[in-house]
Write a protein that binds this DNA or RNA. Structure first.
Length: 667
RNA sequence: GGGCUGGUAGUCGAGCCAGGACCAAGACGGCGGCCUGCGGAGCCGCAAAUCGUGGGUUCGAAUCCCACCCAGCCCGCCA
């Protein structure tokens, strides 16, 4: 096998397009050297690699250099003349078999045409030889990486904004792992926050019932109702206080508005869940001060008081059971689940607080503690060192409440240090709205002496997902759950599958519908840049015509259809006859998989891979329509084309796998 | 008020970081074609874009710089 790929020249042959690129660069190097000699003048060093780009049309070849434009400036010659000189001098291609020709083209490009026969032979041969590992170029700097993502608040079902983080986090994990990094996905359970305390409070008031439906939905309902009732009580209390102290009109108006809003939310919930609402509102009304009760729960839980601990863990675990079920169904995998409570009880948070106080950058404000991040940033010039713009706003970070309990970001500092005990690089996938808190966290790491960690901590921001133009809000009960979306998607794809593939067994049809639907939802999310805000619209999210996942799956299915029809045939060993235009485009796309994969992994950009898979499917559909395979009498060509189909199938599967899509064999 | 992110056809969205053939990918929607040889969730074609606005840098700007406008988000003893 090794001898078969010999004679293809320099470059990494596991990366066919990269090898072609390397050979073009070499040719260009020769051309440039000759041009330098000829001109007699000293010429600047040019980064030849960066002048090579993909031309817009195949008639210009497959790579082109814009070097002549750059040189024309210093040479005072027109670019076309330079391009001609370089092209002629570059055209000694004996050692560069993947380059078919070098030509100058108006207005001054140096165009490189690929030897498609050689490239096809190399690419398809490699893919068939390496199978599912083709293109998964390993990094030469493997790191231990933790991707923390999803980390849905365990007080309600996972909604689609959280799920967006889950899909990206999961794809990043797969990408980095394939790239050769020792990568683990972790879910951070925020069991010590106020939302969970409210949930536990309501759950206890109801007498700690067992779930009557999917457990996260059941408990989430209790949480939403309790939160609304507690907020209404709190808002009323505040309003009264303001009246007594004769506060400004502005404050009164704001307080009134807040009360109105929560009364409205409560009314909605009452209409939706009358029985639970009735019971809880009675119970909350009997409590002299619901907020104090919630506060007590938080305090006791931080201290690890046994009864509270048992209550909170019990109800949180119920929600998590629901989360796990949803995540499993959505193909989102975790290696570890970390409880915030454990971080707290281990003493890590207290230690972080103590050490921050020792630095002198934490000050006592009233009875709470505040971290003066801005002063740290200024003192150590951290904006530059941590890579944010000079104008980036750095407000102070409140670490503890005046009752001594800790706040989320303070606990998160301790947790991030915990993550760094197990990793060289930490990626936290969380909403863009947390940019400031995430930066404050890095500043804290720095001032605590973890400079390298502060630099290797990466916030992967997820853009806002809104619902009919409004931000989703679990507290306000305004959200769409991932379960709802998956159910609806499966229902729609099942209807299609039943219509199109009535011959399949009901069991198989069900599995196919599930794979298509869930892959479609994942693809819809992953194919749009993570940081972009999106408006969730049911019809668009579930429109399979507009979604590329079924399109990609269909290419895969069609490929299998051809191979099934061919039956067992003798495999080809050469692929040099795949030179039709549609074959050339298909081979080129296959040849580009390794570099696409490496870039996607290194730049943390799964979206690029989505686009790649879409284009590959597109090229395959074009190929499918244009050329024959099973009807060929030319047996050798038939075998070579069959090999190409196998190669496409292999790469589609590999790309899908990196994105967490499951391709159905029939659909 | 300040900060962050974004603004590309009717709609959604690549390209921007690493400026080049951009008279700008792809998709939805619109219009018109293609099933008596591999499954039409497909293929082929047409129409549709002041690349938010105005300056600047450059041989060359959707891409870099500056100003402004618009939208979303953040600036909490929530997360």
């Amino acid at each position: 096998m090794a001898s078969r790929t010999s004679g293809l020249g320099t470059g990494n042959l596991a990366d066919p397009f990269g090898a072609f690129r390397a050979q073009c660069e070499e040719a260009l190097q020769k051309g440039y050297a000759a041009f330098q000699k000829k001109s007699g003048k000293p010429l600047p060093e040019v980064d030849l690699h960066s002048t090579l780009e993909s031309p817009p049309d195949p008639s210009f070849g497959q790579l082109a250099s814009s070097i002549s434009f750059e040189l024309s400036r210093t040479q005072k010659t027109n670019p076309m003349a330079i391009a001609k000189d370089i092209a002629i001098a570059s055209a000694h291609l004996e050692q560069l078999p993947l380059v078919a020709s070098v030509e100058a083209a108006e207005p001054g490009y140096v165009n490189f045409r690929v030897n498609i026969a050689k490239l096809a032979d190399l690419t398809v041969g490699k893919i068939l030889q390496e199978g599912s590992t083709y293109g998964l170029l390993k990094t030469d700097q493997p790191k231990r990486v933790i991707v923390e993502h999803t980390s849905a608040n365990p007080a309600r079902p996972i909604h689609i904004a959280t799920a967006k983080g889950g899909f990206f986090g999961d794809a990043l994990t797969r990408l980095l792992m394939a790239r050769g990094h020792d990568t683990k996905a972790r879910f951070y359970i925020d069991d010590a926050g106020r939302q969970v305390a409210i949930m536990a409070y309501g759950y206890r008031l109801l007498g700690e019932p067992g779930p009557k439906e999917k457990s996260d939905h059941f408990v989430g309902k209790i949480y939403s109702i309790t939160a609304a009732l507690v907020e209404v009580a709190e808002a009323k209390k505040r309003l009264e206080l303001l009246r007594k102290t004769q506060a400004s009109d502005l404050d009164m108006i704001a307080a009134n508005k807040a009360l109105d809003e929560w009364v409205g939310v409560a009314a909605d919930l009452q209409a939706k869940y009358p029985a639970e609402f009735e019971w809880l509102s009675q119970a909350v009304a009997n409590d002299a001060d619901p907020n104090v009760s919630v506060q007590e729960l938080t305090q006791k839980y931080e201290k690890g008081e046994p009864a509270t601990r048992e209550l909170v863990r019990k109800v949180t675990q119920m929600v998590l059971n629901g989360h796990e079920e949803t995540l499993r169904r959505a193909f989102i995998h975790f290696d570890e689940w970390d409880w915030e409570g454990d971080v707290l009880w281990s003493g890590r948070v207290a230690e972080v607080l103590d050490r921050l106080k020792e630095t002198g950058f934490a000050t006592n404000k009233g009875r709470s503690w505040e971290f003066d991040a801005a002063r740290v940033v200024e003192t150590f010039n951290l904006k530059e060192k941590l890579g944010v713009s000079p104008s980036f706003e750095v407000p102070p970070l409140t670490l503890t409440r005046s009752d001594g309990t800790t706040l989320y970001t303070a606990r998160d500092i301790a947790y991030s240090m915990y993550k760094f005990e197990k990793a060289d690089r930490v990626i936290t996938v969380i909403g863009v709205e947390q940019s400031i808190a995430q930066f404050q966290l890095r500043v804290a790491l720095w001032v605590l002496g973890h400079k390298k960690e502060a630099q290797n901590y990466y916030h992967f921001p997820i853009g806002i997902v809104s619902l009919e133009g409004q931000k989703m809000s679990a507290r306000r009960g305004r959200y769409v759950t991932l379960d709802q979306v998956l159910d609806e998607a499966v229902a729609r794809s099942a209807a299609e599958v039943n219509k199109r593939s009535a011959d399949l067994s009901p069991d198989l049809r069900k599995r196919v519908a599930e794979n298509i639907a869930i892959s479609a939802v994942r693809y819809a999310v992953l194919s749009v840049e993570a940081a972009k805000s999106t408006n969730f619209v049911w019809d668009r999210a579930l429109n399979f015509e507009a979604n590329s996942a079924p399109f990609i799956n269909y290419a895969y299915t069609r490929g299998l259809g051809i191979l099934r029809k061919l039956g067992r045939i003798e495999p080809a060993t050469r692929f040099e006859r795949l030179v039709e235009p549609v074959e050339r485009e298909l081979v080129l796309q296959l040849a580009k998989f390794p570099e696409t994969f490496a870039t996607a992994a290194d730049t943390l950009d799964p979206t690029q891979l989505c686009l790649y898979a879409n284009v590959l499917a597109q090229r395959f559909h074009e190929f499918y329509e244009k050329v024959d395979i099973s009807h060929l009498s030319d047996e050798e060509l038939k075998r070579q084309r069959a090999g190409l189909v196998v190669a496409v199938r292999t790469v589609l599967l590999a790309a899908a796998d990196l994105l967490g899509l499951r391709l159905a064999e029939r659909m």
